[in-house]
Design a protein around this nucleic acid. Sequence first.
DNA 1: TCAAGCTTGATGCAATTGCATCTATCGCCT
DNA 2: AGGCGATAGATGCAATTGCATCAAGCTTGA
Lengths: 147, 147
Amino acid sequence: MPSPEAITAWARLMRVSRQLVESAEDALKAGGLPPLAWYDVLHELAEAGEGGLRPFQLIERTLFAQYNISRLLARLEADGLVEKLPVADDGRGQTIRITARGREMRRQMWAVYGRSITELVGAKLSADELNMVSALLGRLRHPPVVD
Amino acid sequence: MPSPEAITAWARLMRVSRQLVESAEDALKAGGLPPLAWYDVLHELAEAGEGGLRPFQLIERTLFAQYNISRLLARLEADGLVEKLPVADDGRGQTIRITARGREMRRQMWAVYGRSITELVGAKLSADELNMVSALLGRLRHPPVVD
DNA sequence: TCAAGCTTGATGCAATTGCATCTATCGCCT
DNA sequence: AGGCGATAGATGCAATTGCATCAAGCTTGA
């Protein structure tokens, strides 16, 4: 049913993304570091600053499932990388804040992860081509990027 | 360390691919069909024809881990979608061949999967743009596509 | 005010994944 | 022929994921 062009693009997207994720995960593992998912969360929390984020905000930003975030945060807390604070005006909720150790971990992970990105993507395409990829993929996103 | 362009392209690739996979998986689930991984294997086996494929060939083609293929094939066999045949000249190995039921399942899955591809990708970009995506992503693949 | 329904986050249980290792067979080299 | 490393595939066990559901607190509307 889909056009041949759509099928090829889809297939390539599936294959390349799997391959890139795997390479990046391997690099982290080789460095004795936690998986990518941890980076995603630590990154969002680092951007959020001292105010921290509510778990449901992390879900929106990272696309992880609710139960996934719930348990990932439990592991991060057990490792002292984040802390859970009660929320004043909502007794159900909590605010997640990155700790100093969490920032340090993120820094270490970025050293490896950033290198992977450079090797796997930055070194393969020119800046113009990278922008083209971003623009085209942006239109596949939901909601589409308008830039 | 990576350029801003590389980071954006990487981030978008990660996000979009996760989103697309999730959408396609949801569509299959909603249709009471097995997950995408099953399709990938059935697709390769259908292409391979009566000769079938060895498990290690499936690993090369699909990028799944060895233990993953091993167990996925066990499930597919349990469902009668593939059959395992001994190999004449290699006592360790087996040949996997898709059954009639397997072909039928693949057909059903494609009805749903193909529609997802059309909606998620085919309807969002022109044929030229799709070809551009394929070409750019092809250069990120390992080994790179030369087309 | 308070019941009904919604939102937030956690969790029991089953299925899947990942890791390490195992068995069996093969191919090669002496 | 016999031994030895390499290859093919399976599997025990721990960790993670997915699904369904739960408990607690919030919000709204009569």
